[in-house]
């Protein structure tokens, strides 16, 4: 059996050489894999630094839930890493929603004049119960449970997951 080859790519008739060549390719692939493994693991984000809190005391009391001089409703606050928005219905009931729009992750705002929740990014509209009523949002807002505590009129607002 003649086993003479000049080039690596004409290995059909040289079993020993083609075996060596395959070993070389395999070894290189193994090296690449062993380099990629720590890199991919490194790319994985570290565990979230925000608390996975089950409930939170809102930074606002019930009597502070009203528009300011310019007609703006109090801004959302953080609840377990997401913005949480508080609204008040006409008959005084306080509701809490995850303020992340279900369309593309913008943060919604409450419009007291219109009595709805509005997303400025793509014009999505939710009613005061968080139901998507107009525009692109596909689902209603996630709603949270609200408990009031303290002196009537200026109760603390405790928001918790349902």
């Amino acid at each position: 059996m003649e086993d003479k080859c000049d080039k690596l790519d004409t290995c059909d008739n040289c079993p020993r050489r083609s075996w060596l060549f395959r070993m070389l390719v395999g070894m290189n692939l193994a090296t690449v894999a062993s380099l990629l493994y720590p890199v991919l693991r490194f790319l994985k984000p570290r565990r979230s630094t925000s608390s996975g809190a089950f409930q939170v005391v809102a930074p606002l009391r019930v009597n502070q839930l009203r528009p300011d001089e310019e007609g703006n409703w109090p801004a959302p606050f953080e609840f377990a890493g997401k913005p949480c928005i508080l609204v008040r219905t006409l008959d005084g009931e306080v509701k809490a929603f995850n303020a992340v729009c279900t369309h593309t992750d913008c943060t919604v705002k409450f419009r007291p004049q219109e009595g709805d929740i509005y997303c400025s990014c793509h014009g999505g509209v939710y009613d005061i119960n968080g139901r998507n009523v107009a525009g692109p949002p596909p689902r209603p807002l996630e709603s949270f449970k609200v408990n009031l505590r303290g002196k009537p009129g200026q109760e603390e607002i405790i928001v918790s997951r349902a």
């Binding site: 720590p38 890199v39 693991r41 490194f42 994985k44 984000p45 570290r46 565990r47």
Partner: peptide, 13 residues
């Protein structure tokens, strides 16, 4: 310090 301790292989990179 954080990526050396909290991220996988951070110390190695």
């Amino acid at each position: 310090q954080a990526f050396m301790t909290e991220v996988d292989f951070g110390w190695l990179i």
